[in-house]
């Protein structure tokens, strides 16, 4: 029983990723004209969030779109993909891997707004622009602790950092940013 709770309770953490912008995006060696969007995936499971489509930023799109993601503890990294919507479908422009260690347990204190940038690489592995993010790791508000402790009365001590339950329920595949 207690083992079950501990694996559930600290199985994921909530992070708030604002996908700010990208720079110098190219597709087939040509600068992208319009309609770029970004997808943030947690590498475990199939959880992802998508930004709005930037219609006029060209090869330097700006989204400034805040995405909230529950990140499983065992996920070592996030993947950020930039796609471009075209008449023939969506084309993957570039991918960046964001190690979770860059914003959990690194130099900076929790709740600190971090500005992180990553090199994007296309499917051949060639560098293709840069993506700029800001990340804030969310510390759950205090009432959540007491509430979960009550439900898990037998193992209150092991219940630490229960994620907000709304995170999972709302997920439907095309969620574009939760209000905070």
């Amino acid at each position: 029983m207690s083992k079950f709770y501990s694996s559930i309770s600290i199985s994921s953490r909530t992070i708030e990723i604002t996908v700010l912008s990208a720079e110098n995006l190219k597709s087939n060696r040509r600068s992208i004209k319009k309609n770029a969007f970004a997808v943030v995936r947690s590498n475990v499971g199939n959880d992802f969030r998508t930004t709005v489509i930037d219609t006029d930023g060209g090869s330097n799109p700006k989204w400034n779109d805040k995405l909230v993601l529950d990140l499983p503890v065992q996920a070592p990294a996030l993947t950020v993909e930039v796609h471009c919507k075209t008449t023939t479908g969506n084309r993957l422009v570039g991918t960046a891997t964001v190690p979770v260690s860059d914003f959990f347990g690194g130099y900076v204190p929790e709740n600190y707004l971090q500005f992180l940038s990553y090199r994007l690489r296309d499917q051949r592995g060639d560098s293709n622009g840069i993506i700029n993010l800001s990340v804030r790791t969310k510390v759950p508000p205090a009432p959540v602790y007491s509430c979960s402790a009550a439900s898990a009365s037998s193992s209150a001590a092991t219940v630490v950092g229960v994620p907000l339950s709304v995170g999972k329920n709302i997920f439907s595949g095309v969620v574009t940013g939760l209000p905070v």
Partner: peptide, 13 residues
């Protein structure tokens, strides 16, 4: 260009 680390992270400023 902007500084890049071995893991692909780029200096934010």
């Amino acid at each position: 260009g902007r500084l890049e680390s071995s893991s692909g992270r780029v200096a934010s400023r």
